[in-house]
Design a protein around this nucleic acid. Sequence first.
DNA 1: TCACTTAAGCAACGCTGTTGCCAAAGTGCA
DNA 2: TGCACTTTGGCAACAGCGTTGCTTAAGTGA
Lengths: 356, 356
Amino acid sequence: MVNSNTGVNLPALRSHNAALVLNLLRTAGEDGVSRLDLAERTGLTPQAVSKITGRLRAEGLAVDAGRRASTGGKPRTVLRLLPGAAHAVGLHLDRDELTAVLVDLSGTVIEANVVPLDLGAGAEVVMEVVTGEVAALATDTVLGVGVAMPGPLDHAAGVPHRVTRFPEWDGFPLRDALAARLRLPVVLDKDTNAAALGLALRGAGADSFAYLHLGTGLGAGLVLGGALYRGARTGAGEFGHQTIQLDGPVCGCGGRGCLEALCLAAVARGDLAGAARVLGAGAANLVSLLDIDRVLLGGRIVTGAAEPFVRGVRAVLEERARRGGEPVVPVALAQDSAHPVAEGAAQLVLAPVFGR
Amino acid sequence: MVNSNTGVNLPALRSHNAALVLNLLRTAGEDGVSRLDLAERTGLTPQAVSKITGRLRAEGLAVDAGRRASTGGKPRTVLRLLPGAAHAVGLHLDRDELTAVLVDLSGTVIEANVVPLDLGAGAEVVMEVVTGEVAALATDTVLGVGVAMPGPLDHAAGVPHRVTRFPEWDGFPLRDALAARLRLPVVLDKDTNAAALGLALRGAGADSFAYLHLGTGLGAGLVLGGALYRGARTGAGEFGHQTIQLDGPVCGCGGRGCLEALCLAAVARGDLAGAARVLGAGAANLVSLLDIDRVLLGGRIVTGAAEPFVRGVRAVLEERARRGGEPVVPVALAQDSAHPVAEGAAQLVLAPVFGR
DNA sequence: TCACTTAAGCAACGCTGTTGCCAAAGTGCA
DNA sequence: TGCACTTTGGCAACAGCGTTGCTTAAGTGA
């Protein structure tokens, strides 16, 4: 109940606690959690947990799943999330293809389809393709559709801004148009944010981390304090055009010495170690400024040559930690799922169910 | 009720809503707010607000304060915070002096004292001076003592780390030692964080902003989404050693091309415009990454030559906004109070009362 | 004067998590 | 095998939250 600007009444309290319990069930996965564990981890009384889990079982969201070994008394009954109780559709609108996935409550992919798509073909064509793909996936347990696309965009309003190379999307009310067409709730967000959310919910092993994505461009998704950080106008995570070399080479954005320009230039001339060093410097800036737990790397260029990138970025962060006498912030490759962005997009819909 | 990892019960709900109402009363200041305004802004029903304000009046935290003009019916009764109902002590432990202030609930300074202090004189001597100063200020309505000092430090544990030039503080359990001695709750935080919190509560005109402090060093306090952002290990805001010039001049920290080194070097050679340009580049990086609403500047060097700094930083941010076709993020001098850090330190104690 | 409007509290209510208690289901020793 | 003990977890009663329904207070305007 931290940092809310609105009053809270009993229904809100109830759903908050229910979401909390659901999230713990989700985290536990197949293993399940006992009621007393839930009580301890929520701070609620065992009796309150019994009531809450009773409701969740009645709604078909949770089930009993065996029992733990006894510790001298009645053994604990274990509860488990029923993943099939609800689903979400995740869409990744990329520049040249559309990925659509259906996931269940646990985040498991039930079905995935990839079709060609020209993001520049105009809203009407794109909406048509999207509608078809969603129709092919949607069941009556689908809670909504999450849509991820290249930024910048306005998450709160559900409106893309000037997508690089496809400026015609600027201002098109994509979320509302899709919601009306699909008759389902729709959530729109940046591809990097979706990927970061997916990582956070799959258990990135950190409460705060930065996901750095080096593909056609360089972007970041920030998870701070367990929640995706979007910023005041939901434009946070613009990482590629951080100045890291005052008066450096001119970048496509018009600035000079941008991280993205330097990084891609190094990649272009085959200097992966140099690219990693530049990326590492940017990562070190992030770590210092935001005091995050972890740095995760992803994107086409990184996955194509994971080892030099992970090692190069790690070296810069270790050097930084050594200087400051601070613990080293670990760097790792973002554990890949088959369609990280589309799955993260689906999590845009599921996250609120778990209070995230 | 966003982003809490603990369960919520009725007492917690009650204090949350009460804090929310208190915060609105605080924001309104002398003018006061009507019950119906409170209801609208909290989302609670008018009857709930009546009950809550009734309790606050019974506790002596709020009082009736006249009425608004009628709009065709019974005029609204206006409520006002009773600032003298509680107080807090704020301490600024600087390298060469100690500032101690007593503030009331509204943040108004009741009394302020500045005495010489050698931060390197050892914990025992410092504690002795602090105890004396707090005793001189404390009344029986004091809720606690907020302590601000140069970082880095661990806010959660209340333990300083390696304070530049005074490494002997590393690991000393300052918060607990002071709390035991003063028999009052104590909160410890970085000076830049305290200053930023003070600005946030005095109404910085923004929900998210960065306070950049250029004094003997360069630091930042981040307020994101209305709350002070401290990061995973409460070390966030390390702004001075952001790399902004790859392979640039060596900095005292051992790194190269740090913002602080470049900025201070420019100041040292009298090139304020150059310093402002460097600071602006760092600010632009912050704005892009975190999508904040506002940049506030402070610190001895900036206040000594406000105009060139504000203009220089603003120029860089305007240029950036122009390139991206985005709204310009305003830059301003942090509106100075007499003792910004000490007053902010006091707010470390008061902020929880208002749910911040 | 009187109809109307707006504000705000009293009383009853539904629902929350909590407390007190008890039954269920184990362990372990005699 | 029996019994004391431990641990789990639900039933029932309860205090207390915001909400709903309604009444009273306090204005405006014809």
